[in-house]
Amino acid sequence: MNKTMTAASLALALGAALTVAAAPAAAADGKMSMEKEHCYGVALKGKNDCKAGAGTTCAGTSKTDYQSNAFVAVPKGTCEKTVSKTSPTGYGQLKEFKPKMAG
C-alpha cells in the first residue's frame, strides 16, 4: 500500500493546524471552507418541572383537544418553501409526486 501519510506529513498537518487554530475565526473558516453555524444565545430550557402546563385547561384550545384525532396530513410549514429538483411542486405539497427517473 502506498502510504500517503508519512510521519512527516502528519507533523506538518498538525503544525499547520496549530497555526490555523490560533488564527482569527473568519480567516480560519475561510481557509478551511467549512461552514460553521452557531446557535447564538440558544439556551435550552429545563424540561422537568412541577407545573400544570399552559393550555392544559379544558377550555378548549387546540393544544388541549385531546379527543380530537383529526390528523392534519398536510404539513404547513417552512417545508413548503424548500425547492426540489425531483418534485416540481416542492416539498410538503398536497399533490403526490413521483421522483423523476434518471435519464
Partner: peptide
C-alpha cells in the same frame, strides 16, 4: 407561592389549575 389558572368542572364549579403561569 405561585399563580394558578381557572377552569370549571362538569357542574360549572370553579376548578383551579396549578399552572405556575
Amino acid at each position: 407561592l405561585a399563580g394558578f389558572a381557572q377552569d370549571v368542572d362538569a357542574a360549572g364549579e370553579p376548578l383551579l389549575i396549578d399552572s405556575h403561569g
